[in-house]
């Protein structure tokens, strides 16, 4: 038979009927290991709490062989939170991966186009000025985030949207909103300011089955769209001209990807408040583990899920007092940012 292309990395080639795919080994193995780690972490999270369980009890509760208190603790109390951490973490990981691929920048995430600050502004306005219900708060946050993202996109638009200009405009608009948010909190009375800050930290407290199911359904659809757009997205990492000459309609694909990326983060924000930094960190950790060229979505999703689950576990059970998960992810993200800056400085003396 004919010779094979040496990609420098071993891969599994599947050719059968209409299917012909090449799956590099290392990302496959990394994904498998991550899946096992996630399963282990999930069992640990389901065991832990004021009512301690054994792994066996957890597994039999999950397979429906337990009744009474064990079933209630695992399935009704703890599982929604674990499922939320997994699904939301995966969504954040993919959202960040999309933005880092599009903007070709390891510091990119939906926050760079102002989404996070904008949604916080929206939530603050609802909490402080309208004194609204939870639903209104979510609506305000989504509206604020989306409006900011659209404003940044439009302001950065000149003969199409270019990554660098989007980042610069995003940073400017975010800085403005951040000072607006600070001003709003200073103006508020103490109770309102505290509930605003609690929402703003991002927490899985009080996440119920219905929120997980609704959020999960939205996220499933969005992840499917991201999966379909994965190949054009990776092709666009070669530059707009190269991608266009390979038959990609660059402008609509980019807009579509931005929408999917923002919608993923928006869904998570709606259900749990803004959980910071997972979208920033997960794609980069995934890329280093899987050693792929550019950004790939599946490892980023799995790393995001594992990070979110582990952070929530730390926040609930390891911290001296239960904390919102967002506090832990901020610490993780800060450490990662420091590491990134440190290695960048070392690389360019």
């Amino acid at each position: 038979m004919s010779a094979h292309v040496d990609f420098g990395r071993r891969a599994l080639v599947l050719r059968r009927g209409r299917i012909a795919v090449r799956l590099p080994f290392r990302p496959l193995v990394v994904c498998a290991v991550l899946a096992v780690a996630i399963a282990g972490m999930a069992v640990l999270a389901l065991m832990t709490g004021s009512y301690q369980l054994t792994p066996g009890q957890v597994l039999s509760a999950l397979t429906g062989r337990e009744t009474g208190i064990v079933h209630d603790v695992v399935v009704d109390w703890r599982l929604p939170r674990v499922a939320a951490a997994l699904v939301f973490g995966a969504a954040l990981g993919v959202s960040g991966a999309i933005f880092q691929s599009l903007l070709r920048n390891p510091l990119a995430e939906p926050g760079v186009i102002g989404f996070s600050q904008g949604s916080y502004t929206g939530a603050l306005i609802v909490i402080l000025l309208v004194d609204g219900t939870y639903t209104q708060l979510v609506g305000g946050a989504l509206l604020g985030g989306m409006a900011t993202a659209v404003a940044v996109y439009v302001l950065a638009h000149r003969r199409g949207v270019q990554g660098f200009r989007l980042i610069v405009v995003g940073i400017g608009v975010s800085a403005m909103l951040e000072s607006l948010n600070t001003w709003l909190i200073i103006k508020a009375d103490l109770d309102e300011a505290m509930s605003a800050a609690a929402w703003g930290a991002g927490s899985l407290n009080g996440v119920s089955w219905d929120r997980v199911v609704i959020g999960g359904a939205c996220i499933a659809v969005l992840l499917l769209l991201a999966g379909v757009a994965n190949r054009p997205m990776r092709q666009m990492e070669l530059g707009d001209d190269a991608a266009a000459s390979h038959g990609i309609r660059v402008a609509p694909v980019r807009l579509g990807l931005i929408l999917v990326g923002v919608a993923l983060t928006a869904t998570v924000t709606a259900a749990s408040g803004p959980i910071a930094f997972i979208s920033l960190v997960a794609p980069q950790i995934a890329r280093r583990l899987a050693r792929t060229a550019g950004i790939t979505l599946a490892p980023a999703a799995l790393v995001g899920a594992l990070l979110c689950l582990a952070s929530d576990h730390l926040a609930q059970h390891v911290a001296p007092t239960p904390l919102p998960v967002g506090v832990i992810t901020v610490v993780l993200g800060g450490g990662y940012l420091a590491y990134l800056l440190f290695t960048e400085v070392r690389r360019r003396p």
Binding site: F7, G8, E237, L238, G239, A242, S245, R287, A293
Partner: peptide
């Protein structure tokens, strides 16, 4: 194109295959 970008960590064969 006049300017193209090679994604970080891409190998020659992978780029050609694109």
């Amino acid at each position: 194109p006049q300017s193209s970008i090679a994604p970080d960590g891409i190998t020659v064969a992978d780029l050609v295959a694109r």
